[in-house]
Amino acid sequence: ATETFAADVTWNVSLWGKRRAFTEHVEKLAEEVSAKTDGKFELKLQYGEALSKSRENLDGISFGAFEMAQICASYHPDKNPSLTVLELPFLGVKDLKEEIKVSMKLYEQPAVKEDLGRWNAMALMPSPMPQYNFAGKGDVPDSIEAFNGMRVRALGGIGQLMEAVGAVPTSVTASETYQAIDSGTVRAASFAPHAHLSFKVVEVADWWTKNLNPGTVQCPVIVNIDAYEALPDDFKQALDSSVDPALAHYLETYDKVYEKWWPELESQGVTQVEFSDEELAAFAEKAGPIHAAWVEEQTANGLPGQELLDMVKTTISE
């Protein structure tokens, strides 16, 4: 243990929802940091939006009401336009590991630092999310054309993509999804598997698109820059060095989600739909114009859009 004469530091961490796989890296981070500083640097995790609503976490960070928070870029795309590059459809991210790699690299980009810097925030680590595949009720879609005219719950970029193949994105809140599918308000919804489980979509679903992999969301853990800069060197060191073990722990926990996911699909009798490579390639082409439109919009806003997108694409193909 290191000798430190710094005063004890407590950071409040603003989280929404309950403790779950999605927050396990923050739990681990707190544990590691505490162990490395003999409990002198405490991360106090506050769940259930006790400190802020999820959509206002960046606001809370900006004026220093709390020092750390988890955010999702898609909850407020115009607060953090640079992060939304990783929410574009069909980037081809293989797995969570690759998503960590590309996310960490993105956070190093000056444009991203400046973007988050407007909120006095910096990204510490990602909360990588699996691909947002569709689960739905009724006839199993044997081809991508089958989505034509289908009412689906899909937000943002995935919604645009589905619109491009004739689907009808329909407003439904996450917690209403089960009832909405059950009653036919929408026929399918896109979530990551753990969300399909927690919103009980699997219980009403007849099918799940195993390899559509249209995209995902970008949810970093961010810290207040001033609070970070004010940390004594050894605390800063303790925090930085805890990111890797935290993410490793996160990946382990997520594997356990899949240990539940596959048997659940089996027991609910959910058909796993696999589309052919040609079909997926044709589908992925629909993403081209969406990428181009994103680059154009962000460039107009003064972000190096093309540069960011190219960086992402090269990192993924490495």
């Binding site: 900006s62 407020h76 795309p77 115009d78 607060k79 937000l155 943002g156 919604g159």
Partner: peptide, 20 residues
Amino acid sequence: WYHFDRSWTIGDSTMDIRLP
């Protein structure tokens, strides 16, 4: 007013159809 001001100067929009 500060809450408004942040969304005005830095930017903010809704999830789905990106209304300011």
